[in-house]
C-alpha cells in the first residue's frame, strides 16, 4: 500500500502526505521530477500522485518516462493548470486521471480508491 507523492510545493506535499498516512497508506514524497523517476523505477508503487509543474522534469514528462519503461501503476495528476492543451498533454503522456487544484480530500481519496480497485481488477 505504498503511494508516491510528487509535489514541489512543500506545504501541499506535507499535507497530502499526512492525510494519506492517516488513511493507512505508506507514503514516499519528493518535489523533483528526476527523483520521482528514480524512486518509481526502484520501488513498486500502488499509485503515484503527480504534480504538473515540477523542477527537473515536468509531470507529463515523468509519466511519459515511466510508461515507456513499462510502469503500469495508476498515475493521478494534480494540477492548477486547466487549459485544454495542458490536460491533453497529461492524457497523452499516459496519466490515468487528472484532478484540478484546489481539491477536496474526500474526492481525492475516492479517486485514489477507485483507481486502486480498477488496477486491482485489471491484474
Amino acid at each position: 500500500m505504498r503511494i508516491l507523492i510528487v509535489e514541489d510545493d512543500p506545504r501541499v506535499g506535507s499535507v497530502l502526505e499526512a492525510a494519506l498516512r492517516e488513511e493507512a497508506f505508506e507514503v514516499d514524497r519528493t518535489g523533483d521530477g528526476e527523483d520521482a523517476i528514480a524512486l518509481a523505477s526502484a520501488t513498486e508503487y500502488l499509485l503515484i500522485l503527480l504534480d504538473y509543474m515540477l523542477p527537473g522534469k515536468s509531470g507529463p514528462e515523468v509519466a511519459e518516462v515511466l510508461r515507456r519503461s513499462g510502469r503500469r501503476m495508476p498515475i493521478l495528476m494534480l494540477t492548477a493548470r486547466d487549459a485544454p492543451e495542458d490536460l491533453r498533454r497529461a492524457v497523452d503522456a499516459g496519466v490515468s486521471e487528472v484532478m484540478g487544484k484546489p481539491f477536496r480530500f474526500g474526492e481525492l481519496l475516492y479517486r485514489i480508491q477507485a483507481l486502486l480497485s480498477q488496477a486491482e481488477n485489471q491484474r
Binding site: D9, V12, V15, M53, A80, R81, A83, G100, K101, F105
Partner: peptide, 25 residues
C-alpha cells in the same frame, strides 16, 4: 490570466488541504 489563476490556486490548495486535514479528526 491563466498563470494568475495558477498562482492563486497553489496557495489556496495548501490552505484548503491544511484546513480539511485538521478538521478530519
Amino acid at each position: 490570466i491563466r498563470d494568475l489563476g495558477h498562482d492563486l490556486r497553489t496557495p489556496i490548495t495548501a490552505l484548503r488541504a491544511e484546513l480539511e486535514l485538521a478538521l478530519r479528526s
